[in-house]
Nucleic acid binder design. Structure first.
Lengths: 203, 203
DNA sequence: ATTATAATCGAACACCGTTCGGTTGTCAAG
DNA sequence: CTTGACAACCGAACGGTGTTCGATTATAAT
């Protein structure tokens, strides 16, 4: 076996691994984390339940892999916000991207942030998490540097509050207000603007 | 059977019903909603699993009953905030009570707000929910009336934003930051104060 | 004392996650 | 080309779950 290119065997393995992940992701999107079962995943890709254990150590590892994929997707939402925007707009659009992800991928949003006891086994998660977290820290820092936010507050406290606000909005909309036909994106934007405005330095 | 007082039978039934609820609540507090099982509840009160079905139609109904109890407890936190406080202080302490409940009852907080597919079967929930919701609406309204918050914003949007902020803070602390030994209550207070201050009418 | 019915249980069913031993297919070395 | 090692996969089983049902016991009303 060469150290570099993938052998036919490895390519096949990678493909079925992908098939498992696809089926798992789809199943979670359909029925949520609650109605997710290994055996149903196996059924959908015509495998025996035991076969999956060749690719994932157990159910939690499979779920963790789906979470990792979802988190990657989530980080793409955040990273798609152009850094060329002025500091306050950038921060605002960052928050809107957060909420948009939740509204457009409710099951995965729940899965990623609402799943208890998901101690990330791979440092991959931490890495991406640190990545997206850093995006937010940067957004706040830019506003501070530009004098758009009063420097009476500690940066980390601002990060916490900003994160909590968009996370709370997302959670509430997805899990409690989704049946309302209200335009929650518009409301969120309005109140996020107010939040930014309210933190400007006093004259 | 008389229409009014409880018979001996009914008193016994009410007591075992309470025993079931107690065991269920305790089990959830110990292991969270994930590690909760009907059979374990039955074991703890020396019942057969089938016996529980005399008191609760199924697992979800039992969980819903525990949720209802937790929600009552939650509403007591909110209602314990003295309405005699000045509007802005009242609103602030309302938020702090929300967060305090989450920190002091993490498993129940998760259960109440993080449990998917819990369509409240009893109007009881809705009633209490409406009750606590009304507390928040009143808190905002009082600030508006007192001129403590700019009336450039729609009241319902303010309610949404306030709710989202404290809910987000609670969720983040309980499920992502609980291992930090940071004083999150203090941070939350600081940023909630900033939030209130930021919404004051412009001069 | 008899009877209706509430309260409870044992056993069973179907589903779940997981393990294990065995079978098949594939690939590389001889 | 044969052979042997190993990856890939499966069937069957174990212990766990929620739930149902028929039978059994305890209680209250007649």
């Amino acid at each position: 076996m060469m150290g570099e290119a993938l052998s036919a065997r490895e390519r096949r393995a990678a493909r079925t691994r992908e098939a498992i992940l696809d089926a798992a992701r789809e199943l979670i999107s359909e029925r949520g984390a609650h109605g997710f079962s290994l055996r149903e995943v196996a059924r959908r890709i015509d495998y025996s339940p035991a076969g999956l254990y060749e690719y994932f150590g157990n159910k939690d590892e499979l779920v963790a892999a789906v979470v990792a994929q979802g988190f990657e997707r989530f980080s793409r939402y955040l990273l798609s916000v152009p850094t060329s925007l002025p500091p306050r707009d950038y921060l605002l659009e960052l928050g809107m991207a957060y909420i948009r992800f939740a509204l457009e991928n409710p099951q995965h949003f729940m899965l990623i942030f609402n799943t208890p006891d998901l101690r990330s086994p791979k440092p991959d998660d931490e890495f991406i998490a640190e990545g997206t977290h850093h995006v937010l820290v940067n957004g706040i820092q830019r506003c501070l540097d530009a004098g758009e936010i009063s420097n009476n507050y500690r940066r980390d406290d601002l990060v916490f509050a900003a994160w909590a606000t968009v996370h709370g909005m997302s959670t509430l909309i997805v899990s409690h207000l989704s049946q309302d036909d209200h335009d929650w994106l518009a409301t969120s934007r309005t109140m996020l603007e107010a939040w930014c405005r309210g933190l400007r330095p006093s004259p």
